[in-house]
Structures are given as structure tokens and as C-alpha cells.
Design a protein around this nucleic acid. Structure first.
Lengths: 329, 329
DNA sequence: AATGTGTATTAGAGCGCTCTAATGTAAGAA
DNA sequence: TTCTTACATTAGAGCGCTCTAATACACATT
């Protein structure tokens, strides 16, 4: 920077002003500085800049599982909104584990990201609240009544009810649920499932098997379900990934989908939309969620909102080929 | 840091030593400092640390397309290797575009990442070479004979040959290829396809349609292919994603796979392995590639290798259900 | 006792910027 | 002319660490 200043014959302060194109710099000097910077191949050191200005213009995004297309879709919304607001996004890999998420969060905090978006978090509310004392955070895809941090998610209870209503309307009674273990939205989806089942007078058929939001998990859970003596005629999987795994096993075991068993997922990822899969599922408006998350963050960063806000989007049933009437039997 | 030093009754220098657990610190003081740090909830500022030490212990990873599971799989290898070497990974989203990749690279350079891994890059060798003057970079999934930066990739020419050999052995002659536009490995796979076709005396049947490594691209290309007056009996798609798109369309048009048309992908992603898809494809050892990339980077960072090294892994044909003999006709 | 060796600790000069407060300068108002 | 006001520029004090060189001290060696 000093070299640039010398070459341009100005002070380093002026170089600084030019580099972050501040107002009140004469055109003449601006050109001088830019030319000098170009000639020397000068590139501002963000570390120093951030250290001095105490802000990084960077938002850290922790994605729970890069293998799940849902998170790639959320990221699209985040990226679009961030681009518009002149913030840059850095992504941390949660590795589908609590430890992985914690590490990513820690890295971002140490790099002094201005804010964090945590998608599909497995972290406890308590930890998240403590974290948000250091930097504002928005949790995506998970409900929370926290008074401290913001959230952007779909109403999963409603989503689960949509699934059950749909299956019941088709005539199903023995509807099982594969949950998502410690994943995001698990509690609400499961509660929604239970409530809806009872509302339809099917309380006795409630059957929950543990999954983990992965394909392998869905596979294993479906195996358990289909070996059960009163096997279900419909399976509501906690997300698309596990639904696909379940689909696989069910057909492998010789059952027809949806002739013998209906399968419904959750998230409406590209996976579900694939013609070969054509999974009935619940849509989450990922673009909206991503944009909302950035919006909430910016409100905290620019303005001075301190009250926690929870953006809730509407889920929507997407009917495809994996759901139909139960076998006559 | 000063507060910690005061509370512990030592100098800031000693606090610094303790925080990066350097040797030659007495146990007694170490405990004092750690206790003080804990009490104050002190967390070192990486920005300042990096500014002062001129290294960040961070490797920037630019992933071309988060929607493509191939990159998630590469990342697994990178993450594992980075964890072992005490480096942290930060991910940049290439947004499947050149501009997106450039932006991510720029961000990482400004944050002074110690090194970069660029997976599936659409950037020019020239730009990459210039970039590698600032920080060492390893390009994954793309061949290059650069004398400046390192690469880790599969031998795509061989991979393409495996595909063609397989299809020819099944009896196919009219084998078309959907390429990947400006994506990584495109040139080699296409060249491998052409060479192998000629080697089998099928030069006249060479037929390349442009794709872009996305599902939509594969879909569109397949549409074109199947409407051709001499439509192919086999399609070699440049990657799994486009193969899946092609698969969709081909079946939608009423053709049987593999009865009427065989389809082969590339990458052996989880997508291809899905029972519903069961795509014949070429395996790339993603774990090996990821580890190799980090390894090459560390050699540059720790040691002082300056000569470009190119790690080449072996591709392998994975036979599944989308390839079979051509129709008798 | 003098000297050497190794370990533990610290002062203080950077790292490369930003930002506040001060200074300079030109044009319009009183 | 003198005073305002607005704009343009700069000096220099941090930001929160690391790292070199210096210092202090205990212990072993001659």
C-alpha cells in the first residue's frame, strides 16, 4: 500500500479511500492511485482490512450435509441474496455431524464472519444462543422459539399433516414414519405425523422408526418396517434422501410402489423430481428460505433489531408417482 | 489478550505462546493462562494472528457445482485429509460458472488462504497459473500439462475408452457422446471417445452433442439425439448428472433402456448407484483424488517442491443396468 | 569462581490496513 | 474583506496478534 502511495505521490490514507471507493476523492487522484495499484499488481489484504475495520463483509454458511441436495438448493437462495447485498459467502462443511458443525462455526467466529447462517443444524439451542452473542446467526430449516437467534423454516408440523391427510384420503391407515434422528425439523415432523394420525383416529397405527436423513438410514429403516408383522401400506420418510433409500429397499423386497406401499418424502429436492424417482413429497420454498435468512441477518447487521424473528414459510404437497391407494386386501 | 495476560499476571507474549501451544512454557504458567482465558471467554482473533504470522492454516476449496454429488464426494476426501493435517477447509461456491469460480478464488486469495483446491474448474490454465503465483493451487478433476500448478485427476481418456470398449463389446456401433461444454475433463473424455471409436473402426459413427454437465443439459442433448434420423443405440454421457437427464428423456420418449438404448455415465456418484437409476458408469476414486490434492498442497506448503506434479488415478468401469446389447434390428 | 548451556519469560517492533481528527483549499455568503 | 461551508487530503494511532532479540535464571562443567 505504501508503495502504491509513493508511486502515485499521495498518502496511504488516500490509497485506502480509493481502494474501498469512498466518496470525496478527486477523480484525478483516483486515477493516479488506480494506475499505480495496477502497475504494482497490488491487492488489498483483507485480513488487515478486516482487522482494522472490525468487519469482514462475509457471511459464514454452515451446511449440515453436502450430500443432501436440499442444502445445495438452500445455498442457491443464500447466494443470490448475498450477491445482491455485496456480502460474500463462505461455506463450512458440517459433515453431517455435530462436531463438524461446531468446528465450522468456530472457524467462522475466529475469522470474524459478520454473521452466520446455519442450515440443518444439529446443534443445541443453548449452544446456538451462546454463539449468537459473538455474531448474529440465523438457523435455517429448524424451528426454534429462541428469544435470541432468528430462524427461517417451513412449518413442518403442517407439512407432516399434509402428508398424512393425503395418504389418509387415498385410503391408507397403517402409515409409518421414518424420522431423521438428530436432524433439523425432526421433532416437528414427527409431532405433526402423530397429531395428524390421531386426528384421523389412527392413533393405534402410529409407528415411528429411527432414521438419520441419509439414504442408508432410510434403507435400514424401511427394511425394519417391511419385516414387521403388520407392515405399513404407506411410509412417510423424514426427507427425500431417506425416502429414496426406502424406495429402493421396498422395491428390492419385491413390493410394488405405490401398488403395495406408498412412499412420501420431504423437501422436494431435485432428487424427488427425477423422472425415475418421481417421489411424492413436501415442497419447501428453498429460494425463499435462503433469501429470508440473509434478510434477517442484514437486519441485524445494518439496522439494530435485537428481537428474535422467526420466518415461517408454507409447505406444499407435491403429488407424484410414489403415492396411491393401498392394496385392496 | 492483554486482559488475559493481566489476569494471569504474565506478559501478552506468554499468552500468545500458550494459545498456540508452543513448547518451553512452564506448566504452572500454562495453567494460569488457560484459566484466565477461560474465565474471560477469550478466543484468539484469527485475523490478527494471520496478519502477524502470515499464514492461515486454511485451505480454500472451490467447488464448481454443489448440485453435483461428485463434488460432495471429492470434498469428503479433502476434508478427511485436511483434518489429519490440522488444516481447516473453507468452501467457495463456483455456482457452475466461470464468474462464480473467479469470485471464490479472489475471496480466498484476499483471505490469504495458504493454498487452494479447485475442483471441476472452468477457469483457463492461464488464469490458474497466474493465481498460483499468489498461493499454491491444485486443480482436481481436470487434466493439465501446466508446469506451474499441480493436478489430481483420473485419466479421462482411458475412462472414455473403457466406456466405448464396453459398448462395442456389447455389439453397439452407433454410439453418441454428450459432452460437458466448458466443464472439467470434457476435452479428454471427448478425445478418448473419438480415439476409441476410430480404433474400433467406427469413425463414421462419431456423434458429439453438446451438454453442460447438468441434468437439464443431458435432457436437452438426449432429445436432440433421439430425434436424429440415425439415432444412436448407445449414449455415452459426460457425467452421471447428464446421464440421468438423458435417461429420463429417453424413457419418456418410449424407448426401453437398455433394450433400445444403452446409457453410460461418468463419475460413479451416489446418484448412479441408486437402485432406481442403476447407471453403468466410470468410477473416479474420489477419496484418493481428494487426499492426493491435499497431499500435493502440503508438499508445497511444508516442503519446498516447486515442480508441478500431476497425480493421475485409474478409472474403472462399473457395469450396472443401463447398458446391454443393442436391439436386433 | 568463572564460564557455558538450556529453558522460561518478556519487551516491543511489526503485520497492512482503517478511521478519527486535523489541515488545506476553494467557492459562496455576509 | 472576513467568515462559513463543503470538499479533498493527510498524519498517525490503533486493530490483536506473532516473532525476534534480549534478559533472567538454574544448573552443570571446568
Amino acid at each position: 500500500m505504501q508503495q502504491v502511495a509513493e508511486l502515485a505521490g499521495v498518502s496511504t490514507a488516500l490509497v485506502s479511500l480509493v481502494m474501498r471507493d469512498a466518496p470525496n476523492v478527486s477523480d484525478y487522484r483516483r486515477q493516479l492511485v488506480l494506475a499505480a495499484a495496477d502497475e504494482l499488481g497490488y491487492r488489498p489484504n483483507v485480513l488487515a482490512r478486516n482487522l482494522a475495520s472490525r468487519r469482514t463483509q462475509t457471511i459464514g454458511v454452515v451446511l449440515n450435509d453436502l450430500h443432501n441436495p436440499f442444502f445445495a438448493e438452500i445455498l442457491d437462495g443464500l447466494q443470490a441474496a448475498a450477491d445482491e447485498s455485496d456480502y460474500r459467502l463462505l461455506i463450512g462443511n458440517g459433515s453431517h455431524s455435530q462436531l463438524g458443525e461446531e468446528r465450522s462455526v468456530e472457524t467462522f467466529l475466529q475469522f470474524r464472519a459478520d454473521g452466520l447462517v446455519i442450515a440443518g443444524s444439529m446443534l443445541s439451542d443453548d449452544l446456538l444462543e451462546r454463539t449468537s452473542r459473538t455474531a448474529p446467526i440465523v438457523v435455517v430449516g429448524r424451528t426454534s422459539s429462541s428469544k435470541v437467534f432468528d430462524t427461517a423454516n417451513t412449518d413442518d408440523q403442517v407439512g407432516a399433516r399434509l402428508v398424512i391427510d393425503h395418504l389418509v384420503a387415498l385410503g391408507h391407515q397403517r402409515i409409518a414414519h421414518i424420522d431423521g434422528g438428530r436432524g433439523a425439523g425432526v421433532i416437528e415432523r414427527r409431532a405433526g405425523y402423530r397429531t395428524a394420525m390421531r386426528a384421523h383416529g389412527l392413533g393405534e397405527h402410529i409407528h415411528v422408526v429411527r432414521g438419520d436423513f441419509t439414504e442408508a438410514g432410510g434403507r435400514k429403516a424401511a427394511q425394519t418396517l417391511m419385516q414387521h408383522d403388520r407392515r405399513p401400506t404407506a411410509i412417510f420418510a423424514g426427507n427425500d434422501l431417506s425416502a429414496v433409500g426406502a424406495l429402493d429397499i421396498v422395491e428390492n423386497l419385491g413390493f410394488d410402489v405405490p401398488g403395495d406401499v406408498s412412499i412420501v418424502g420431504y423437501d422436494n429436492t431435485a432428487l424427488a423430481a427425477m423422472h425415475h424417482v418421481s417421489l411424492t413429497t413436501i415442497n419447501q420454498p428453498t429460494e425463499e428460505l435462503g433469501r429470508a435468512a440473509i434478510g434477517l441477518l442484514l437486519e441485524r447487521l445494518d439496522g439494530d433489531r435485537t428481537k428474535a424473528t422467526h420466518h415461517v414459510a408454507e409447505p406444499e404437497l407435491i403429488r407424484r408417482s410414489t403415492s396411491g391407494s393401498p392394496p385392496a386386501s
